[in-house]
């Protein structure tokens, strides 16, 4: 299991190497990449902030869940922090398992769960301002209550 939150650019090959195994017949990778638009606005960069120790603890918890649910699977999860440009990877996940179906399922479970429970926040920078995602959304909702 390879788990890390880091400021340096992510290396997908490192995640792949961490899960390669002779008994793994399927190896699935996922890269989350900074996109140039959101809600019709042009995104120029994204800043990621993490509660580092807790983020790694939660990522480890996800990895342990994966290994428990999909026997003989292996997993690597790397998440980046700091300011990222368009096209750079913010998260990479690699999962290997005896068969492809398990590897696909486990990888999807890992990214979906990461987005729900890992304490990391993103701030999108547009041409004319910045927005903390999810925060602004909830602020609008909660203020209306």
């Amino acid at each position: 299991m390879l788990i890390r939150v880091q400021e340096q650019p992510l290396d997908l090959a490192e995640a792949v190497r961490a899960v390669e195994h002779p008994s793994a017949g399927g190896l699935v990778t996922f890269s989350g990449v900074v996109r140039d638009h959101h809600d019709g606005k042009r995104v120029v960069a994204i800043g990621y902030e993490a509660y580092g120790t807790m983020a790694e603890a939660k990522m480890r918890q996800i990895a342990e869940d994966v290994i428990r649910r999909w026997p003989d699977s292996r997993i690597a999860i790397l998440h980046r922090t700091g300011k990222l440009e368009i096209g750079e990877a913010s998260v990479v996940i690699a999962v290997s398992a005896p068969h492809r179906a398990e590897a696909f399922d486990a990888c999807e479970y890992a990214i979906d769960t990461l987005k729900q429970i890992v304490p990391i926040w993103k701030k999108e920078a547009y041409e004319n301002g910045e927005v903390w995602l999810e925060y602004e959304h909830r602020l609008a909702q909660d203020s209306a209550r």
Partner: peptide, 11 residues
């Protein structure tokens, strides 16, 4: 104690 807005990591 940590106080945190809703998370928005990943991609």
């Amino acid at each position: 104690l940590a106080l945190m807005p809703p998370v928005s990591g990943g991609c």
